[in-house]
Every structure is written in C-alpha cells, then in structure tokens.
C-alpha cells in the first residue's frame, strides 16, 4: 500500500513523543495565499476570527506545549456548506512538508463515491485516519451511506475521529452532536476504532459510557466550552466526573487533543496536567494511546459489494 511522504510511523511505544490528536489547519497563511476559498471556509464555515499565521507559528505553538506531533483534521462539508474546511489535498501537502504532522482525511458520507475517495486519500495521499462531523457535514451517523465509509475505514485499519458534543460552528444542530448517535456503527464495526471528540460535552457521561462499554471507543480531551481550560478541566474532570474514573478505568481510552486553534495547545496541556492524574496515566493519554490508534494493522482485503 502506497503512502505519501508525510506519512511517518510514530515512535515505538515507550517513547515520550507527545501527540495532539485534534488540531485544525484553518489559520495557515501559506494555504490562505494559495487557495482562494480557504479563508472564507475558515471564517464562515468553521467560524474562527483569529489572524492567519505563518506555518512556523503552528510549530512554535507545538514547541511551547511540548507536543512533537499533531493530527491535522480537515472537514469535507462541500455539499452541506459549499466549502471544505481545508481539504484532504491541503492536509497531505502540509504532511509532505513536515513529519511532525499526521494527516487525516475527511469525506462526505452522503456524496457518491465517498468510500472510494477515502480509500484513495489513505492509499494515494498517505492520510492516516478519517474525520467525520455529522453536524457540520449534515449526515446521520446511522445513515447506510455512512456505513460504507466505516466499512472502508475498518478495512484500511485507520481510526475514525468523529465530532461529538456541542459544536461552535454556525448552523450545527445539537441533535446531530450526541455521542450515542454513534452507537450503531460502533457496534456494527467492532474493529474500527472511533474517537469521540470533545469528551462529548455536554453529554460527557454518555460519551464515557460508550468508552467504558465498547473496546473500540476512545475519547479525546479537546473539550472547552466555558471558563479557562484549567477551570473547565478542574470542574468536568474532578467534580462532574471523578478524576479516578480516568485514572483507573479510562487510562487506555483517552487521547490528548487540543482543538487548536480554537484553543492554544499549551493551555490544554497545562489544564490536563493540573488534574490529579499519575505520570503513568498522563503518558498513556499524551503518547501511548494515540500511538496505538495510529499503528495500522495489516489492511484487510476490501470487500466488494
């Protein structure tokens, strides 16, 4: 199976290479200058108002946070919103420029040929996972057309990072954001690892129940909806949910994600470190769990329909 230049295998388990599993390449000057619709998609669809920054800033933000590698997430919402929030090709381009980036693909399950498009993104562009956002992409996680995408992802041995929890993007109904909407595909595709983003907030317990019950469900920490990152984490992960739940029961099921540039990576790292978690647990969240998700097994033979 061919892979792009930017697709590097993460370090072996036991290294200290910290991975941010949830970033969006939406404010990069170099892409804004090159692609006419990029800026409008970031402003109007993704809805972020910060200044565009040179790519160097992205790396410096990772550096000050102690993050070595970052997963880049595009969102293919061309049908639902007329624009893609960065494309698979743009993500692949960034990954070809730096081994610090791990690119995911995004396809629209309701578009004809989505499954094949995902296969090509993995095999030809070297992308390493699939990002889906039912609210922004306007699809139901249980839509049979989405099942075709899950099937290919499972066969390719890549993880699916799916939006769960409230979305800040405009025109994204909350009813499309509930983590339990993913229960049918999670059950149907037990070899496909699902990462429920944002800890599913405000449905945190529902997301946790999914991760506790199903071996193929993970959670990412890119959750911030009020107060500061530290205050939010202190409340959600020590008062709303006991920290011991993460330490004892979810230590193998949580990956660090920042949601940069909606939040600076360093703030989310500090917030996570402010919790009463052991170094062993933090190492799993920052390093090991992400490495395990990104380590692809031998791809299964594609099933033909």
């Amino acid at each position: 199976m061919r892979q792009g230049k930017g697709s590097k295998t993460p370090g072996p388990v036991g290294t200290k290479i910290m991975i941010d599993f949830h970033t969006h390449p939406v404010l990069i000057q170099e892409l804004a200058k090159k692609y006419p619709d990029y800026e409008r998609a970031s402003r109007e669809v993704f809805h972020i108002g910060n200044n565009f920054q040179p790519l160097e800033t992205f790396f410096l933000q990772m550096d000050v946070a102690g993050i070595e590698r970052a997963v880049l997430l595009p969102i293919d919402c061309r049908r639902a919103r007329k624009l893609a929030v960065s494309s698979n090709e743009q993500v692949a381009e960034l990954c070809q420029g730096s081994s610090r980036f791990i690119g995911f693909a995004s396809v629209d399950p309701r578009r004809k040929g989505a499954a094949k498009e995902l296969q090509d993104a993995v095999e030809k562009l070297g992308l390493r996972g699939v990002k889906l956002d039912p609210a922004l992409q306007d699809f139901a996680p249980s839509d049979p057309r989405a099942f075709a995408v899950y099937e290919v992802a499972e066969a390719l041995g890549i993880p699916a990072l799916v939006h769960a929890g409230m979305s800040w993007a405009p025109e994204t109904p909350l009813e499309r954001c509930h983590p339990l909407l993913f229960e049918p595909p999670v059950r149907r595709f037990p070899k496909l690892n699902f990462v429920l983003a944002h800890f599913g907030w405000p449905w945190v317990w529902d997301a946790i129940a999914m991760a506790l019950k199903y071996p193929n469900v993970y959670l990412d920490t890119s959750s911030l909806y009020y107060d500061s990152p530290k205050e939010f984490f202190q409340f959600v992960f020590s008062k709303q949910v006991p920290t011991t739940l993460i330490e004892r029961s979810l230590r193998n099921k949580v990956v660090f994600g920042s949601n940069y540039p909606r939040v600076e990576i360093k703030n989310m790292v500090h917030a996570l470190r402010s919790l009463a978690l052991t170094e062993g647990c933090l190492h799993k969240i920052f390093v090991e769990n992400a490495e395990r998700l990104l380590a692809r097994p031998e791809p299964q033979r594609m099933r033909r329909k």
């Binding site: 809805h47 107060d227 500061s228 540039p261």
Partner: peptide, 16 residues
Amino acid sequence: DYHHRRYLDYDGRLGF
C-alpha cells in the same frame, strides 16, 4: 477570576 473567560462569538472561541 477574569470576566473575559467566556465564549467570544466574534472569534469563535473562548477568551482566557
């Protein structure tokens, strides 16, 4: 305890 720690609609993110 800063009041700025809230969602800023014009930026699409929180101010902290």
